[in-house]
Amino acid sequence: MGADFPPVHVRLGADQGLAWQLLASLERVFYGYSLAAIVGVLLGILLGQSLFAFRALDPLFQVLRTVPPLAWLPISLATLKQAEPSAVFVIFITAIWPIILNTAVGVRNIPQQYRNVARVLQLNGWEFFIKIMLPASVPFMFTGLRIGVGMSWLAIVAAEMLVGGTGIGFFLWDSWNSSLLSDMIVALAAIGLIGFALDRLLAALGALVQRGA
């Protein structure tokens, strides 16, 4: 898998061009991160509305979020028995903590006067969420989502180095084993650019949601 092959070539098994390796990694990130975003936002909203639950679970979340991503890989491999779902789980468990915590903080920080207005207007739960909670918590929520997507990208690159098969992490490790310095440099540049693009995408989406909220 040297630099003499075009970036989109496909041979057999893991012998694929850089573009396909990136797509394989992005697919894993999409599944794991999407699940983390959905679960994290929902849990964050629920915890943010209960001060008792937030204080009770925050220490647990703080402990779990400090566990390095690769420390989850042996557990997921032992449980799931397959590399692909294990890599997705590592992404999920890595990304979910900043999403939960930032969303919960955003909900907790809704100004009291906003809540008073909601009571005066007798807003139901859905109206309160759309008109009060979402606009007030979107900045915090998307801060967590941006941190989560960056951690997802870091986690998948590291996990693929150990799991093997396909992906940009495997491509980088395989290039090192093959002493292909040029391929390693190209892979590192691609990793950085994709990570930057993902962050910018979430930032733009957050700005769009905040303007529409």
Rank of each mutant, 00 (worst) to 15 (best):
P135F: 11
L123P: 13
M133I: 15
A24Q: 03
S137H: 13
L202P: 01
Y33L: 08
I185H: 04
R146E: 13
L47D: 06
V41L: 08
A56P: 08
L205R: 03
P85R: 09
S86M: 07
A78K: 10
L201S: 07
L188R: 00
L154K: 07
A36F: 10
P139E: 13
F5N: 02
L26A: 08
L201Q: 04
V63E: 09
P85F: 11
Q113M: 12
F61G: 14
L172A: 05
I185R: 03
G44L: 05
M133S: 14
E84H: 11
E127W: 07
T166W: 02
G212R: 13
L47S: 12
G106Q: 12
L134T: 15
L35M: 05
W153K: 12
G144M: 13
V186H: 01
P85G: 08
V138R: 09
Q49T: 14
A213H: 02
Q16N: 00
P6K: 02
V90T: 15
L42F: 11
S50I: 09
L51V: 13
L180F: 02
Q210C: 00
R146T: 15
S182P: 05
L60R: 02
P139K: 12
I38N: 04
G17C: 09
L12C: 03
D199N: 03
V67Y: 10
G206F: 04
A204G: 04
I96W: 09
M151H: 12
W176G: 09
R211S: 06
P7L: 10
W173F: 06
Q210P: 00
L181Q: 00
